[in-house]
Design a protein around this nucleic acid. Structure first.
Lengths: 112, 112
DNA sequence: TGAAACGTCAACCAAATGGTTGAATATCGA
DNA sequence: TCGATATTCAACCATTTGGTTGACGTTTCA
């Protein structure tokens, strides 16, 4: 079940979380290492990672006592498609655009 | 000064606001008309429009007693560029776009 | 075995968010 | 001028968000 656009965009709206995503672009990281550059508690970063996980933007896998965080960039695809629609489609085709989104996006259980 | 990614993504995180943007894709609208399909007060919709304006996603121009709302899709560019930094997505999802065009051709124009 | 490292949980707090209602402001039209 | 229309403002409320701290469960390893 793909997380809704609500959850994905809300996850992206925080600068700490966007920085974390950029960090994970380079390599997978343990929670403690993700937290290191930030001037906030480990628990706070752990919460941010929870938000990113709920949005499907990262995945977390525990090996031993270390929990590894991995970027899942595919989760950005749905949001990206949604945004691109505003640049690429003619205003005339709203109905068609909406049908397109409907067919393109799975699991979007949002109210209209 | 372009609004920060924080503000833009936060604005996009609400389904009511995304629906408003989709409505404005079709045409400019007055505040009252924007509010019409929603089951909430006019004041609430007015607040949403304020959030979208603060994010630069729409502009509002008052003519007479009517305030017209206009989509400003360029505001999505910065956010779009940020997301594209994560690779995977081309600026346009060409495959999906071609399928969309194909369905357009096959389906004919069934807008009423 | 036991201390240290890794990470989360629970309770708490301040501020922001999304909604309400009622009053206020400004403009149009007859 | 007066009533209706269009929109915002102000105060209020409940919920969510982003942060804190301290206690807790696991896992490692000397």
């Amino acid at each position: 079940m793909t997380p809704s656009l609500d959850i994905v965009f809300a996850a992206l709206a925080d600068p700490t979380r966007r920085t974390i995503l950029a960090m994970l672009l380079e390599d997978d990281m343990a929670v403690t290492d993700v937290a290191h550059p930030f001037e906030m508690s480990l628990a706070a970063v752990s919460k941010h990672l929870g938000v990113l996980t709920a949005a499907g933007l990262i995945s977390q896998e525990k090996r031993g006592r270390v929990k590894w965080c991995k970027l899942e960039p595919d989760a950005l695809r749905e949001a990206s498609v949604w945004m691109q629609g505003f640049g690429q489609f003619e205003p005339v085709n709203l109905d068609a655009f909406e049908r397109f989104l409907q067919s393109e996006i799975e699991g979007g259980t949002e109210r209209s």
